[in-house]
Design a protein around this nucleic acid. Structure first.
Lengths: 215, 215
DNA sequence: TAGATTGTTAATCGATTAACAATC
DNA sequence: TAGATTGTTAATCGATTAACAATC
């Protein structure tokens, strides 16, 4: 029997759970129940257990989840075990802020390269991450076997940068530019993180929420 | 008959559509069909029409959607018409990058205040946005009638900042700190934008996708 | 053993897709 | 009018919730 497909919403929740477990582990907690997770993440305990059940856990039974064990099970099933090389395109304020992000350095991702079209910026930047001019994106991504990219360029450059990255074999992109990036290629995933879009979503949820209350 | 509730996934797609229409409008396009939207945003045309139908449009019929009209209808229904005051807490690299974001200045949101706990930072920072020490969060948020906040502080400070903001009456938070922020209060919405979480999600989707193909 | 908590099946609920009538 | 595209109802599909048996 092949393992059943995990629904996308469940995958999203499991990612959130994984990050949360990582935090718990740092704080020294070793064990947690689905009821406690419900309180912390606002995911129903039923839902938590259901999501975890997709992982085909070995440690079944009672007594709550062993955090270390659960983390490694999620990592194994969701593919976090093999370290992946990632890169950042656009070394403006936002890009350099991400370059300096301490948690990424400690994570399962290896920040292998930064790119910017401005050569002066490349010369003055202070970072341990190797940086390259943007016209080298394709060759560097291929040589270094980079699989994921973060885009932090202005809106008008974002799509062409994405096209280059995808052409070079990148499989996933987190896009911070305020445009919706398209992938022509199947098997490439894009996550658009537009701040204005997030603010819009909050505004809309608030509106919907108040009309629920007042009508 | 009261208007029916819009499902959350539909609200999310409408927000994406709104941002996209904004882009189209800038480029001078005036009209678009559901089939064209499908190609650009990878949302099925059925789905697009269904989502739009929740808006109780006045302009029904054929010939595609008038972009300006559709934008204003979405804005009206989702609550983007009244400009809202927003603030940023944490003026490190990421916070100042957001402060300088040109698109926010042009948007329906008014960046009314920035906060940081480091007084030196407040004195040296160059921005047109008024900045305050973090201990003034509660009074400033109340006085300026700020409804939404962006958090860009280190992980260990994020929850306490969120508690202060919520205590002062904030209704929505976009959180860039790499922790899952909790709201004890109902009617407050939080959007956690953890870069590592996004990378995890991409990794997991890729894994799921390949096993679909290869099994 | 008794208590607690998980894992899983079944039932409900909601969202997406399909199809077609209504409209420009 | 003919063609094209929307708006909406009905049908399918999938996810969440509830309940309980299995397990530590």
């Amino acid at each position: 029997m092949t393992k059943s497909k995990i629904p996308k919403p469940a995958i999203e929740r499991l990612c959130t759970l994984y990050r949360f477990l990582d935090m718990c582990e740092e704080e020294g907690t070793t064990c947690i129940s689905s009821a406690q997770i419900e309180k912390q993440l606002h995911i129903g305990s039923h839902n938590v257990r259901k999501d975890i059940s997709y992982l085909n856990l070995s440690c079944s039974g009672s007594g709550g989840y062993n955090i270390k064990k659960l983390k490694s099970q999620i990592a194994a099933q969701l593919g976090f075990t093999q370290p992946q090389n990632i890169c950042i395109v656009g070394l403006g304020r936002l890009g350099t802020a991400i370059l300096a992000h301490e948690r990424i350095a400690e994570s399962e991702y290896n920040l292998a390269a930064g790119f910017d079209s401005n050569i002066n910026k490349l010369e003055t930047i202070r970072t341990r991450v190797p940086v390259f001019p943007s016209y080298e994106i394709e060759s560097v991504v291929r040589q270094m076997n980079i699989t994921l990219a973060i885009i932090a360029v202005p809106a008008d450059a974002a799509q062409s940068v994405a096209d280059k990255l995808i052409g070079a074999g990148i499989r996933g992109i987190v896009n911070f530019a305020p445009v919706v990036i398209k992938t022509g290629k199947s098997g490439v995933f894009i996550n658009n993180v537009d701040i204005l879009g997030k603010l819009n979503l909050l505004t809309a949820l608030l509106k919907a929420n108040s009309s629920e209350i007042y009508q």
